[in-house]
């Protein structure tokens, strides 16, 4: 049964695949951990979301479960990337910055002094 929804579904699945690929490429090309977290977790939010949206078009019976999956990704993704970034900073991994802009440094230093 080929309808407009089938084509929309394929379109969104393909779009999602492209964004996921760009996320992977970003992980390979970026200079340090923080920028890699950015590329790896973010390009994949839109990638995963449009992939799931495409599946919802192809299999209309599943849309409630797929919607919950999208919401779950939207809630858990920022938490995990925040945890990775903050954890690496606590382990003294300095971010790569051409212009040496690092506002978080002073917070960590003041904590060190308190110890």
């Amino acid at each position: 049964m080929e309808t407009i929804f089938t084509y929309l579904g394929y379109f969104f699945v393909a779009l999602g695949a492209i964004f996921l690929f760009l996320g992977a490429l970003g992980i390979y090309r970026m200079p340090d951990l923080y920028t890699r977290v950015q590329a790896g977790t973010k390009a994949s939010t839109l990638g995963a979301m449009s992939l799931i949206l495409g599946v919802a078009f192809l299999e209309p019976d599943w849309w409630i479960k797929l919607l919950i999956m999208i919401l779950f990704i939207a809630f858990s993704n920022p938490l995990s990337s925040h945890a990775i970034a903050r954890g690496s900073y606590k382990h003294n991994l300095k971010p790569f910055s051409k212009e040496q802009v690092d506002a978080y440094e002073e917070v960590e230093e003041s904590k060190e002094e308190q110890k």
Partner: peptide, 17 residues
């Protein structure tokens, strides 16, 4: 971000603000 990743020179200027 997709444009940055695909750009041959990778024009990033990261920092923590």
């Amino acid at each position: 971000v997709a444009k940055i990743v695909l750009h041959p020179k990778l024009p990033v200027n990261p920092g923590i603000v």
